[in-house]
Simulated scan of single mutants.
Amino acid sequence: MQLDLNLLAALDALLEEGSVTGAAARLHVTAPAMSRSLGRIRRTTGDQILVRTGRTMTPTPYALAVREQVHQLLHQVQGVLAPSRELDLATLERTFTLRWHDSLVTLSGPALLSAVRGQAPGVRLRFVAESSVDTPELRRGEVDLEANANRPGAPDIRAESVGETRLAVVVRQGHPLTRVGTVTAKRYAAAEHVTVSRRGNLGNALDDALARLGLTRRVVATVPTEAAALEFVRDSDLLVCVPEVTTRSAVADLGLVVLPLPLDLPSAPIYLSWHQRYESDPAHAWLRGLARTALTTYGTPP
């Protein structure tokens, strides 16, 4: 039986997207063309692959069983067929999209851009904001590198830890907590708080830690970025907890005061993540190396 490798790409897209429309968009073909490919896959495998459940499509047990194998096979085929050539940074023309936590953009972004421009002046970096919901851009290839505290769970996403940071309390100069000596958990909880959440959550792990001590705090506002939270703190008696790496610029540029967090919480990791399709891409590997250096040097406290 003669096999069409295009069906392998179609099957991978169908299993990743879970719909004919999504798979068609991913491979830049029409929905009817993808529907015909699904029909051919069904005839070839003798399995329905995707079945309709209400308004959505559900993969069959066979589809779930072969999903990772199909993805690996396609990746291997692409690696075999991809042209092998030496990377020439002086002539490289490429735009990389990076979705990093805003504090990491502030602290490590300038160093990364400087290193990139020094080696490959034709390369552009496109930093985009984190979304308020989990999005599949990394898997779609629309984002090249992510950097944040989340370790991806998908098997096709590569991730490595490039550092860690602890939380610290930031207040304005003259804040009541700066005049009490030791900041206890009870004093910390009694203050009014602003939190940072791109999803708009008013609570987080700090509330869980306080609850274990029989304490609660009053959160009066939540904002999407640490930069915004620091502005709220700057002219009020609010306080905010942010990673220690963020406090460097807060103290220097805004004249704020950093206090230790009186709670026993583990350090937050910093992960650099990318899709496995870029694992052997020379240009992407080069950028990963520079990003790793920038994040390790500027994104992690000494």
Rank of each mutant, 00 (worst) to 15 (best):
D156R: 02
S267W: 08
R26D: 08
G18H: 02
P121W: 04
A23T: 05
L92C: 07
L272E: 13
V233R: 06
A211M: 06
I49P: 08
H175I: 08
D47H: 14
H71Q: 13
E279P: 03
P61S: 10
E137Y: 09
L138E: 00
T135Y: 00
D208T: 15
T53V: 11
R139I: 11
I270Y: 10
D4M: 09
R151M: 06
P262S: 12
Q78A: 14
A227F: 06
E244A: 09
T293Q: 13
P262C: 14
E130G: 11
A205F: 06
E142C: 00
L89T: 06
R67K: 13
G54S: 12
D102Q: 10
T91D: 10
A90Y: 00
L254A: 14
I41R: 06
L265D: 13
A154I: 01
R166F: 00
S236T: 13
Q72N: 13
N204W: 11
P152Q: 03
V245F: 10
L74R: 15
S132P: 13
L239W: 02
Y298D: 01
G22D: 09
Q276H: 14
S197L: 12
L98W: 03
G174A: 11
I157G: 01
A154M: 00
A185Y: 08
R217M: 06
T97S: 08
D235Q: 09
